[in-house]
Nucleic acid binder design. Structure first.
Lengths: 345, 345
DNA sequence: TTTAGCACTCGACTAGTTAGAGTGCTAACA
DNA sequence: TGTTAGCACTCTAACTAGTCGAGTGCTAAA
């Protein structure tokens, strides 16, 4: 469905005005502020048409109009022009990454904070998911006589450790030997491979040290299973308190409760009705998550070598500055992809 | 300052009523609900006295009275009788600890959740602080030809790892040797000791592998410096949204912003005007943290072998159920102390 | 097709009124 | 002397009109 030019202009003006004012917009306001060369009466007629078509609606008879979900959708798809950040803005953003980075988590957190600060909405970041990680190294490190540390390293750089008790009968050389055997047999394998075949084989070789071997295998399984940064970062939750649509404490509570649940955040980020690549905008009722019908979400993925490994998103009221939010989200994912490549080489 | 019995009874009744209703309490209500054997008129006289003494106040002429900070203080110090949890309640709480505990963090989180759930206020937990931790073990684990993992273990069970690049010239045996030397020289030492004396000594022995040695020392320093669970856990922040005193979105924002800052949480927990042991109740204006004047905090410490290593607290409106909150906080710290002892043996 | 004019609608605001809760004071009572 | 009943008084919350202004839809003229 395409609208004639004047209707488009009116719709655009209305949405723009509503986004910044949060008040229903009347025909007069549009005629005055936006130079369309026609009188309020004409605009009224056009607005009546737009309402019939479902792009805008009227809260009550004597109020102005506000965009409907459908109106926003049309705006996002057809009217909004994508901006690029200016050099200036890019610099400001990139300067915030100049911190001591201990692990990838820091990078994600900084990213998250930048997004929520600039957009003034809530933002979420999902850490990289490697659907298959393989065992790179396993090592038993003797600590005291009766304790050792199992260290497991995966090929995507994740390290996990676990303390275990040792039986008296074992010495450092045994531990070294066990490590060697496990590495020889298991290195490079995925969780499935490890489970499937080799356990028994090693079992016989290491039958004497069943206890230790079991502990090590446990940790290996746990580590390979644990999807690394399977963690969702959340930032700027309090920003919603600035939005006039959340003046009602009940609404605040509903939304904040939702955002507390990792499951929900995952759902927001992974809900892929549109292609995996590019920006994904969900407006109001388009959100499948119950209770998010007054919000819009803008999500996008970041990649390594074209492979999607994680995603980020922004959550705001339906009356959201889509132009700005989309621009930021796009820039952030692009930059994240670059940084990921550097990080994992 | 001590009050006569009838005044005490009236104050107690008033506070009790106000805690549960959040509405100013009138003389009539007290006479009807609480069987004091006197008429509302008498109670009015007594209440006028109590107001003169500063224990209660009147929001406006034709309203009932509400307790002042001073009134709450008197209640907490003199009128409130400490309860113990019933066997039943204790069981319910303890059953929640039956989860797979990977590290101490889980325990603290569960504790926090229990507290906020039962009290219906916000609760915070500060992880154990060991003011001095010593190096238990350091190990270089070869991964590939050009990478190794530095593993550092402290005597209170904290493990940190870091990936380093290796020069071509080094082999596994070298790494093993370096580990041995470092352990021989540094094991059991504190950060200060390590800094002070031995660096040079080892340096000469390991001059060939300066690069690796430096990386290891870096991690050791970082690890010993990092105060283990130097982390504050926060739970039940949304509970404040149920409190009628936070119907105003601005107040919500102020408080939630405060609670977002770790620094503030630390301040709440570590603000020791009263002795370290036992329960510490701060009512309204007694809180030194700016913006917390409408809240009360109840904090307490947990210990190992009588040594204070961490603290927990509950934050709620001044109109708080002190009896319940104190009981819970006390129980939780006692139980935490027990669990810590088991955990760190 | 556009526009000016006009009657109409509805929410926001204001002012006035009422009902009710609670107080303080006074005088009577035990 | 302490307690109580009675009463006048105060103040807020809730309700009711009444007014204003923003905005609309419709009609008729340009």
């Amino acid at each position: 469905m395409t609208l004639d030019e004047r209707k488009q202009k009116i719709l655009q003006a209305l949405i723009k005005d509503y986004i910044s004012s949060a008040e229903p917009v009347g025909s007069r306001t549009i005629a005055k502020k936006y130079d369309l060369g026609v009188s309020p009466a004409t605009i009224r007629n056009e607005m009546a048409d737009l309402e019939d078509l479902g792009y805008i609606e009227q809260p009550h008879t004597s109020a102005g109009r506000i965009p409907s979900d459908r109106g926003y959708r049309y705006y996002v798809d057809c009217l909004m022009k994508k901006k690029r950040l200016t050099e200036e803005e890019q610099k400001t953003i990139l300067s915030k990454y100049k911190i001591k980075v201990r692990d990838i988590g820091n990078v994600l957190q900084v990213t998250n904070n930048i997004m929520s600060n600039i957009t003034n909405y809530t933002s979420i970041v999902l850490g990289p998911q490697f659907n298959q990680s393989n065992l790179r190294h396993v090592q038993l490190v003797p600590l005291d006589n009766d304790k050792a540390l199992v260290v497991v390293v995966t090929d995507n750089g994740m390290v996990q450790t676990k303390m275990i008790d040792l039986p008296q009968t074992i010495n450092d050389i045994d531990l070294q030997k066990i490590s060697q055997i496990m590495n020889a047999k298991l290195q490079g394998l995925s969780l499935e491979d490890i489970k499937l075949t080799l356990i028994k084989e090693i079992y016989s070789e290491l039958s004497k040290h069943k206890h230790i071997f079991n502990a090590a295998i446990d940790l290996i399984q746990e580590t390979l299973n644990l999807n690394h940064e399977d963690k969702v970062y959340l930032a700027g939750t309090l920003n919603i308190l600035n939005q006039p649509e959340f003046r009602d404490i009940k609404k605040v509570k509903t939304l904040l409760s939702l955002l507390e649940q990792e499951k929900v955040l995952m759902e927001i980020l992974s809900d892929k009705c549109t292609p995996e690549e590019g920006i994904n905008v969900k407006i109001g009722g388009e959100n499948t998550v119950e209770g998010l019908q007054n919000c819009s979400t803008i999500t996008a993925t970041y990649q390594i070598d074209g492979r999607v490994i994680g995603s980020v998103g922004v959550i705001g009221p339906t009356r959201m500055d889509y132009e700005k939010a989309v621009t930021i989200v796009e820039f952030m994912t692009q930059h994240l992809s670059l940084m990921m490549r550097d990080f994992y080489r």
